[in-house]
Amino acid sequence: MLQKKVCMLGSFAVGKTSLVTRFVKSLYSDTYHTTIGVKIDKKLVEVDQQHVNCILWDIAGEDEFYTINNSYLRGMSGYILVVDNTRKVTLDVAKTIYDRVEENQGKIPCVLVINKTDLNVDSEISEQDLEQFIPDIPIIKSSAKTGQGVEEAFTQLVHLMLNKGHA
């Protein structure tokens, strides 16, 4: 069976852990628990008639004092860049991370996830902002709370990884 390392990257408190928990365990909690270092989970998915064992590396979010350790990204097949729909600054962080990954690891399949869309009233990210993000990266709007877009985000990334898409 194929095994692929998938990293969850983004600023802190954007919902990376919630997305993984929703995807792996179909659970959600409103309480914010910050991730320390890395949290590893597994999920078997079937995409394009192939079974893929996804090893999910949920990496602690970046802030002004903490930058992702590059060694955590070693050997990853793809990554999900997570942004908080209600905090535009997290889109800037995502762009910085994307540039750094590309510089250190080259082009790797990636999906941009705009999380917390259930809080659309407080949305700070416009369509214009997204158009200005990196072209050709699939953008998926999600809510770990409602489950909207979660499966789609991971499935799309696996699809890209299988097809070695460099979106």
């Binding site: 320390i36 270092g37 890395v38 949290k39 590893i40 989970d41 350790n69």
Partner: peptide, 8 residues
């Protein structure tokens, strides 16, 4: 050093 991590 690895730093902290968690795994199930």
């Amino acid at each position: 050093n690895t730093g902290p991590w968690s795994e199930s």
